[in-house]
Design a protein around this nucleic acid. Sequence first.
DNA 1: CCCTAATCGAGACGGTACGTCCAGTCTTAAA
DNA 2: TTTAAGACTGGACGTACCGTCTCGATTAGGG
Lengths: 190, 190, 190, 190
Amino acid sequence: MPRGAARSEASRTAILTAIATLIDRMGFDNVTIEAIATEAGVGKQTIYRWYPSKNAIVAEALAEGTLVPESFPVPETGDALADISAWLERVLAFLGDETHAALLGSLLSASIDSPEIGLRVAERLGMASPTVAERVQQARDAGQLRPALTGEQIDQLIFGLVVMRALGRAPYVPGEAHRLVAALLGVAPD
Amino acid sequence: MPRGAARSEASRTAILTAIATLIDRMGFDNVTIEAIATEAGVGKQTIYRWYPSKNAIVAEALAEGTLVPESFPVPETGDALADISAWLERVLAFLGDETHAALLGSLLSASIDSPEIGLRVAERLGMASPTVAERVQQARDAGQLRPALTGEQIDQLIFGLVVMRALGRAPYVPGEAHRLVAALLGVAPD
Amino acid sequence: MPRGAARSEASRTAILTAIATLIDRMGFDNVTIEAIATEAGVGKQTIYRWYPSKNAIVAEALAEGTLVPESFPVPETGDALADISAWLERVLAFLGDETHAALLGSLLSASIDSPEIGLRVAERLGMASPTVAERVQQARDAGQLRPALTGEQIDQLIFGLVVMRALGRAPYVPGEAHRLVAALLGVAPD
Amino acid sequence: MPRGAARSEASRTAILTAIATLIDRMGFDNVTIEAIATEAGVGKQTIYRWYPSKNAIVAEALAEGTLVPESFPVPETGDALADISAWLERVLAFLGDETHAALLGSLLSASIDSPEIGLRVAERLGMASPTVAERVQQARDAGQLRPALTGEQIDQLIFGLVVMRALGRAPYVPGEAHRLVAALLGVAPD
DNA sequence: CCCTAATCGAGACGGTACGTCCAGTCTTAAA
DNA sequence: TTTAAGACTGGACGTACCGTCTCGATTAGGG
């Protein structure tokens, strides 16, 4: 058994809450470790003791749901086209809000030197376990559809599309999600 | 006519060269204006006189071809599928080199707060005027193919895919480009 | 000729003034470099650019007279006993003020790892060029007196005495200076 | 009677030993409470429980003889001049060693905000109970000598001289102690 | 041919944030 | 109840860059 005081859960929570607050108050890039410490009412060293970098805090806040409370699970009704369409619809609608798009943009930017963040973002968006790719594979195995692309490729195209929206290109047109997914799955839309 | 000394072309070039050198020596984020000035043998003020920010320098270096010497024009043989496939093949192969992927990642990251850079990147990659979207439209007009998606959507899906590769996901499998483009255009691959 | 902007005299002065102000406002040991920078309205780096340590600032403030405006020259009337007595009287009276004693104490403390400061303190107190030692030697040469001790020893005993007062021992009794000097010079007091 | 564990003598000793070790390994000013705790294999709180400050530890280490094992009692042969000379000789020789001078310097520096340390230092050096002042007084009472100065003044001059040596001024010349003491006592040296 | 204005390399300036180190307090589990 | 261990808030340290400003030198028109 380790002696000495245990990690303070209060501080941990305060840090995660603080970074979320600050990011949406002043934008991802303008958030400093010092500001986090002040906002959280925590010593700077307490942050450095547990996190090697700002990205690591973000990763944890992301995993914890502090940063993006919503979650985007892919429904499982058995109809892959409908499921994925519905999910993509929600995601694109979410990104219609400029604040959300900006946040996701920053997170993707952070993903470049922190794969961990990329992973957490994908997770939050519902693109990990069970991923879209797996859902497509199931549909294919069930003989529901025979798309020209592999599940992974489709997965990647869709995620890429989401990223493009976050990076600021093109507004969302309702119903678009369904047509996109249909085309990618090689099915005629209703 | 303005009196006084004119802008020094030597300095301008030195700055662009310096930023290219430094970016690949120490990574985009670690490049500071001061380092650029030193490397270029130029006063800091000379940089600030002509560029409002690091991003602006990058944008010019990009436009000038200093940063990415290669260019990726979409061929124009009349066969849209072949043209776009060939082009995508080259781009994905280029991103197979980790250095290139990292560079593009940084540039995309910079695009978030500098649309100018986003534009230049798209330009460099051959995704602007004439864009993939236009090529698809031409083919559609010529009756060569009738894809389920609009040119813009296809354009976006493809760019999104490119971005995903740059962000570090999935290695490139030769031949993949052709299958992807074929599927997106709604054509059976050869 | 060095190019670039010259050192700012305004900043230099502000720094010296600030350290003097702060030392007497909150005591030598509690003065931080950051406080000096703030008080002087100067960037921290401007201090570090010119001074390796707090002690170096103190040394300059001392040399400049910013820290201790008074000076204690040894008079030169030809009568060594009277001259030195008068001088010591002034010094001991000065140290009667507790603030002054505390300041000198701190300075002596700083002298331990900064001989420069020791020198400047001696200078300020009038114990350097022409030093008490030299005055004694002159008197001896002129046949005015033949003390049992060398000028240097007397000098050292006197400085030691001054230090003891600064370190907090014994209050000053008027007239004491004369008796002390007389005894050290081997002369009967008047 | 207090219940619970009593103060651990082992810890107390370890702390005193540790501070002595660290002072001569890295210099007085660089010794931190944390380093003492680590070196002593003791919790920080154990130190803070018993000592209000680093100076208090030093004071105890001094009183205990852990810091300066040597002691310098003034001999009592009845011949005040010889006794004091012999004692001063030993002290000055001790300070000839640079390490010792540096240590004493630091201790004097610490005395400025901790009179307790000043007292302990004086004690260690043999300048307290029976002090040099008292010895002079006894000699005067016995009619052995009639110095021009009071015992206290002599005491102070001598301590001041010792301090000056510790502060780094002047090397020791053998035999000097005798001449100095003789002069201060108003006696012709042998 | 000088004058005047703009540019240049150099570098000091006031600031902000960094990541580290300690001070002094508080918490835990063991003895 | 004390101990060793160690986490906690707080705050100064010395460094790195930011973007601005100030030098003296250089380089062109325009008078």
